[in-house]
């Protein structure tokens, strides 16, 4: 079925390409539809909204954001390749979702189906506690968990997610046993922390930025300290080799011509290089990364191996 479709589509696309070769030189010449495979208000939405005005400023066209939530992103990604590959349809992608989900079950797409263009930022995992918590440092927490195995509860966003995988990895490295309570998103998981339903949270640096007056970060899973939180140590400094988080990027339908992919990759890179964009993103607790179209394969190969191992360890894949 698929090959049949390709047989028909490939020459058609080639013809279209030749016809529109002139037009592509001025890409983009009309608004680009940017589908977020999650609901509005989440971090995928907010970071896309951050890009919106910069895109318009630099390239003169609108990014039109719409939502296609369902199945933790799977509904959107499964349909990405059915969209026209004319360069005017792009979709947000998230790691580790696009790696872990297809490994769990048949969710309608495979990681390799997605034509990834650019990974533009990541939200580092962080251990978050309430500002009035008894845990002042990560060591306090580990000591408590050692004395009370299983008693310390962490809220986090979903299972098989960056939060969950970080919890499992950390438990193993620190030799402790904690209880992970999955909530349906970072918002719900923060609410549980603030309401003291749980003792701590596996959240993101962005949680610390958004609720700076009410929470404290104990450690962040980054190579270097986050510029917004110069006083919070990294796990590496404390002796745990954890650098992790949720990466977000952009993908296009696999029928999109190579030339357009390279062009879009360069455009997203230019937004990332903008000083004001960087400032805004970092102020919200995000960290920019620049994995462009050329570097994508190496990046994904590394991440695939890492996440698959962690997911197996966490028991979310068999």
């Amino acid at each position: 079925m698929l090959t049949f479709k390709r047989l028909i589509l490939a020459p058609l696309c080639a013809v279209l390409l030749m016809l529109s070769a002139g037009a592509i030189a001025e890409y983009p010449e009309k608004p680009i539809s940017y589908v977020i495979p999650f609901g509005p208000g989440g971090e995928s939405d907010i970071t896309a909204r951050h890009q919106q005005p910069f895109f318009k400023n630099k390239f003169g066209q609108d990014l039109v954001i719409s939502y296609k939530p369902g199945g933790g992103g799977a509904v959107g990604w499964a349909q990405l390749n059915e969209m026209p590959g004319d360069g005017y349809n792009i979709m947000g992608v998230n790691l580790p979702h696009i790696i872990v989900k297809p490994l769990q079950k048949d969710v309608g797409f495979k990681t390799s189906d997605l034509a990834l263009i650019y990974m533009f930022h990541y939200t580092p995992d962080a251990v978050v506690v309430k500002a009035d918590s008894q845990f002042k440092t990560l060591k306090d927490m580990i000591d408590y968990a050692k004395k009370n195995p299983g008693k310390l509860t962490f809220s986090g966003s979903g299972k098989g997610t960056a939060n969950h995988l970080a919890q499992v990895t950390f438990d193993k490295l620190a030799g402790i046993k904690t209880t992970y309570v999955a909530f349906k998103g970072t918002g719900a998981s923060v609410t549980a922390l603030l309401g003291k339903q749980v003792g701590a949270q596996w959240g993101y640096t962005s949680v610390g930025a958004k609720h700076s007056d009410k929470v404290r970060l104990l450690a962040v899973a980054m190579e270097q300290r986050h510029p917004r939180f110069p006083d919070v140590p990294t796990f590496k400094e404390l002796g745990f080799d954890i650098v992790s988080g949720a990466y977000r990027g952009i993908a296009m339908p696999s029928s999109t011509p190579e030339e357009v992919r390279v062009k879009l990759s360069a455009m997203i890179g230019r937004i990332n290089a903008d000083g004001e964009f960087k400032k805004r993103m970092e102020n919200d607790g995000f960290a920019l990364v620049d994995v462009d179209y050329k570097g994508m394969k190496a990046f994904m190969d590394e991440k695939k191996a890492g996440y698959a191992a962690a997911a197996k360890e966490a028991g979310v894949i068999k």
């Binding site: 058609l12 696309c13 013809v15 279209l16 539809s33 039109v64 719409s66 026209p84 004319d86």
Partner: peptide, 13 residues
């Protein structure tokens, strides 16, 4: 409302 209603494969090849 900027809803991307399907244009139809018949018309876009």
């Amino acid at each position: 409302l900027l809803v991307p209603l399907p244009i139809g494969r018949l018309f876009i090849g």
